[in-house]
Design a protein around this nucleic acid. Sequence first.
DNA 1: CCAGACGTTGTT
DNA 2: GTCTGG
DNA 3: CCAGACGTTGTT
DNA 4: GTCTGG
Length: 236
Amino acid sequence: MCGRFVATTAPSDLALLFDAVLDDPFAEQFRANYNVAPTTQILTLVQTDDSANDRVLRRAHWGLLPSWSKDRKRAASMINARSETLTEKPSFRNLVARHRCVIPVDGYYEWRTVDVATGPKTPKRPYFISSPDGVALALAGLWTTWKDPERNGELVRSCAIITTTPNERLAAIHDRMPCVLDGDDIGEWLSGEPAPLHLLRAAAPERLRHYSVSTAVNTVRNNGPELIEPAETTLF
DNA sequence: CCAGACGTTGTT
DNA sequence: GTCTGG
DNA sequence: CCAGACGTTGTT
DNA sequence: GTCTGG
């Protein structure tokens, strides 16, 4: 799956990379984040209706809040959406047509849950997965808005990252992975009609690299470039 | 009709 | 909001 | 996703 | 065990 990630590329660089504009002056507040956790504000890339500068980078809370939610309590369990059931689930199916987005990340963390010949008592180890060249990845997502009753109906944007079955290499670590989009697929995902669900597939093994990192990443308050330094041994 | 769920993951 | 279960 | 709390009262 | 916070 994808439950923790890295966001260190500056918004202005993401705008260049994804041919987008920034929709509010948050660039000044940007700080590299090596430990992005659910419920925090992240950047999403969306295609807006007004065609002038129609690709926009804007903030959203990670953890989808359906418009009918009573409170934010369950947002943390909606950080991912299964690609296989996207069009069936009440929380997601209405968003597939016109609320698709891309979540730019520099990489994400995965905790190994598969025992590969090491026995069942192996301690859980975190891995960092990214592009081999370190360039930001475009993850497929869905977004929506919710009116916060505790803040006078203020609109809250939120999003979820779409997952699928992993390629054969990443299957050694985990049984899910986020859907990565490349090249023209990004534009197709953001504006294609009907929704190009065929793009929600596992990236090829050579598209991503992975290596084990320190368990320091487990604690959310730890945050720095040391979190993505390779640990002494990479088992896979 | 009303009440209650609406999600993913991992673990047992 | 909308669907399912009772 | 993992870590950490999980409680009340009264006093500072 | 289960929920909340980050």
